Amino acid sequence: MHPDVITVDVLEGYALLLTFANGEKRIFSVEPYLDRGIFRELRDPAYFRSVRAISGFVSWPHEQDFSPDTLYLKSVPATLPKALP
């Protein structure tokens, strides 16, 4: 089991900057999921920015979410872009 997400910031290019409970910062690209079922709604930039860290997951208002395991395993260590306002 991987650490929970405690904060999430939106980056350019449908990416998320995640801070995990162990202090690691990692970048997760949502782009590979944007053509799949319920994730299509995430293509709307305003809706994409509505993401929140909830109970260790990242989630959007219409119940799209990613588990801490997926987020950790499919992300890379953060060393790059700034968060969008």
Rank of each mutant, 00 (worst) to 15 (best):
M1K: 11
H2S: 15
H2N: 15
D4H: 12
D4S: 13
V5R: 09
V5S: 03
I6R: 03
T7P: 01
T7G: 00
D9C: 13
E12I: 11
G13Q: 10
G13D: 10
A15P: 01
L17V: 05
L17Q: 08
L18H: 02
L18S: 00
T19H: 01
T19C: 00
T19G: 08
N22H: 02
N22F: 04
R26Y: 08
I27N: 10
F28V: 08
Y33T: 02
D35W: 07
D35Y: 11
G37Y: 02
E41Y: 14
L42E: 06
R43A: 15
D44N: 15
F48S: 00
R49G: 10
V51F: 05
S55M: 14
S55Y: 15
V58C: 06
S59E: 15
P61G: 09
P61A: 09
P61H: 11
P61V: 03
H62S: 13
H62Q: 12
E63P: 02
E63A: 14
E63F: 13
Q64G: 12
Q64T: 09
F66I: 00
P68A: 03
P68I: 01
D69S: 10
L71G: 05
L71E: 05
K74W: 11
S75W: 06
V76Y: 02
V76E: 12
V76C: 00
P77H: 04
T79N: 04
P81C: 03
P81Y: 10
P81D: 14
K82E: 12
K82I: 12
L84F: 10
